[in-house]
Amino acid sequence: VNMMASTVPTTVLCLMNMVSPDELADDEEYEEICDDVRDECSKYGRVLSLHIPRPIEGADIHGLGKIFVEFSSVTDCASAGTALAGRKFASRVVVTSYYDPDRYSQRDFAGVEGTE
């Protein structure tokens, strides 16, 4: 696996360690989290869309606990990524990576299979 290629920015930012399934299950809290993330990300670039997988009882939801933000350009996405990595969200440390835009557009959050 090419480690370099996997840190190259795309147009989709993946934000991790920010939300718990409990918080996302609550409609009001979910809406607030969406607003908070969209507002903050918009400071660094134009946000086209946002997707936060929510828990469904008894189902294994791919990407649960992650937040995906699609930007209009790779530059905007990279600025947001640099600015937000290591920030705090609800006292947790924000961890970021970049996500494959094709998989994002297909709402495919299954993650990387691959060997360890």
Binding site: M3, G86, V95, T96, S97, Y99, D100, V112, E116
Partner: peptide, 14 residues
């Protein structure tokens, strides 16, 4: 422990 991580880490690694 960087807070920006590679996208090719598996779910378990992440």
């Amino acid at each position: 422990m960087p807070t920006s991580i590679p996208s090719n880490m598996t779910e378990r690694q992440t």
